[in-house]
Simulated scan of single mutants.
Amino acid sequence: MQVAGNTCICDLSQARSNEDRDRWMLALERAWTTGAHLSCECPRQGDKRLRFTAGRLVREPGKGFEHAPACVFYFPPRSQSGMSSYKVGVRAADTPGEWCLEVGPVITSPLEGFKQASSASSTMFSLRALFDFVWTIAGLNAWSPEAQSWRTVRDVNDRLLEAARDIYLERFPLVDYLLVGTPGVKEQKRSNRAKALKALEASRPFIAIVPLAAWSETREQASDHRLALTDFDGIPAFSCLSAEWQKALSENPFVVDAWRGGDRVLAVILATPCSPRLARLEKLRLVPVSAAWLPLDSAEQRWMELKLREEQRCFWKPLAFDSVSSRQLPDFWLEEGSRYAIPIAVRCEASRE
C-alpha cells in the first residue's frame, strides 16, 4: 500500500494465525479509509488496485484478469468462456456485491426464476450457469501449484461462500440462499440449518451444493426416491422424482462413468423445503470434479487435468454456462506467465491406458 507517497508491503501469507491476519486486515482497512492506495503485488503488470467493501479486501470491479493466475484476486477474461454470452454487468457502487444477475420479477424469492430458466435468455441464468458462475468466481475452475494448500473440503466451501457474498440476484445476496456440505464444521452445520429453516418459514426455495454418496446400483436407480448424499451436515434430505434424476444422469454420459469409477460428483440442487428434515427437489445438476475440485466433462479432460497438475502447470478450465455459441471452447487455458493464455484441446486416443 501507499500512504502519503510511502510504500509498505504487507504479506498476509506470513500471518502466523488467524488472529494475526485479522489484525493486519483491520490495519489495512483503517489505512484505506484514511486515503491509502492498496494494490496487489502479484507478478503481473496491470491495474491491480484493491479496496475494502463490507469489511472485506476485494479487487476493483472488472479487474480480475489484471492479476496473475495464481493470485486470489484473479478472474479470467469473460471472452474466454461461456460467460461471454451473457450481458452480466458490474454491480452498482451502492451495494457490496461485485456481480449482479438478472433473475426476473422477484415476488417471494429471487430463486423462483431458476425453476423455468433456460439457455434461451442472454441475461437470465439457469441453475447450470449459476454453478459455473459461482465456481469461476471462487477460483475453483483454475489450478496453480500454490492452490494445493487450500483445496480441502472446508477451504473449498469457504471459497464458495465468499463467492456467493459477491453475487447478487437482483438486490438479494446469493449467500443467504446457498447451503454447502462441510463435514464436522459446527458453524457451517448451524448456518445450513438456519437457512433451511428460514426458507421453510417463508415457503421459498434454496440452493445446495453437496457431493453424491459413493456409487451403488441401488443409488443409481434411485429406488427409494431420495437423493443419496454425503457431507450434508444441517442440510435436509431431498425427495427426487425419477424423471428428474434420470434427466440429470443423462445430460452427460461421463457423469455416470465418473460416479461408478469413484470420482467425486457434486449435486447442485434447487429445492423447496417441506419440513425441517425434508425438501422437494425442483432442479438438479450433477457435476463430476477432480481431486482438485475442477469440473470435468470427459475422461480425456480428467487425464489431461491430472497430467497438468503433476507437471506443476498453471491453468484453468473455461466453463460453458448456458452458452449456445457455435464457438468451440478449449478444454483448458494454459497460463505460462505471458500476457496471453494458450488454449488446450484434448483429443481422444484409443490406445491411451
Rank of each mutant, 00 (worst) to 15 (best):
A68Q: 06
R219G: 04
P273F: 00
E146R: 11
A258H: 00
A243H: 08
D20Y: 14
P273L: 09
V287A: 04
Y340R: 11
L212P: 00
E217S: 10
S338G: 12
D231Y: 00
S223R: 01
G261D: 15
V256T: 07
F315Q: 01
D331Q: 03
I235A: 02
L169C: 05
A54H: 13
L296G: 02
L178K: 01
R264C: 01
K115I: 05
Q116T: 11
R280Y: 01
Y340C: 08
I269G: 01
A213T: 00
S275M: 12
A213H: 01
P273E: 06
R352Y: 09
D233W: 02
G184K: 10
R30D: 12
G46Y: 15
P145T: 08
T33N: 06
A271N: 05
V265W: 00
R193H: 10
N6P: 07
C71I: 09
S119Y: 13
E311M: 15
T136V: 12
A345V: 15
R352H: 13
Y177C: 03
R21S: 10
D297S: 12
E66C: 07
V58D: 10
R190T: 13
R128H: 08
L101G: 01
I269N: 05
P276K: 10
S121C: 13
G139C: 02
R165L: 05
S109M: 07
R56A: 14
C42G: 05
L38E: 04
S216C: 09
H37R: 15
C10K: 09
N192A: 09
F315M: 02
S121P: 01
V58M: 05
L266W: 03
Y340T: 06
Q221I: 08
A92L: 14
E102G: 08
L284H: 03
A292H: 00
L229N: 02
G46K: 11
W32C: 09
P236K: 05
G262S: 11
V180T: 06
L38M: 05
G46L: 06
F65T: 05
L197H: 08
F114M: 06
G5P: 07
D20K: 08
P43Y: 01
R49W: 09
T182L: 02
L197V: 08
P236E: 04
R59Q: 08
A320L: 10
E66L: 10
S326K: 15
S216K: 14
R285M: 04
S216W: 00
Q301K: 06
L200V: 09
L241D: 02
L212M: 04
V175I: 15
W303H: 09
P253R: 13
S290Q: 03
D263A: 03
L200Y: 02
C348R: 14
L111P: 00
